[in-house]
């Protein structure tokens, strides 16, 4: 008896994702998806390669030296 219930549940959960996918989520084809991903990463890489502003290194150095106080950077 419990086995029957289990089967029913399994069938239901198999049905649900496929029908909800059809109903709500249009998906981009893989070529377009790749083109967008490539552009996004190219833009991001360019940002990542910018030199780190000195203020951040200085901030961390400063805190390293004056270690022990809270909010010592102000």
């Amino acid at each position: 008896m419990t086995v029957d219930k289990g089967n029913k549940l399994a069938r239901l959960s198999l049905d649900r994702p496929s029908s909800s996918k059809l109903a709500t989520d249009p998906k981009l084809d893989s070529t377009s998806q790749k083109r967008i991903g490539d552009q996004l990463r190219a833009m991001y890489d360019e940002l990542m390669q910018q030199p780190v502003p000195d203020r951040f290194r200085e901030l961390l150095d400063q805190l390293d030296k004056g270690n022990g106080g809270k909010g010592g950077a102000q």
Binding site: L47, M48, D64
Partner: peptide
């Protein structure tokens, strides 16, 4: 802690890229 600070500094470029975007 010093190691952690180094790691935090190393994360700055990706934090900036995220923040700018």
């Amino acid at each position: 802690e010093a190691e952690l600070r180094e790691a935090i500094l190393a994360a700055v470029p990706s934090l900036r890229a995220f923040a700018i975007s």
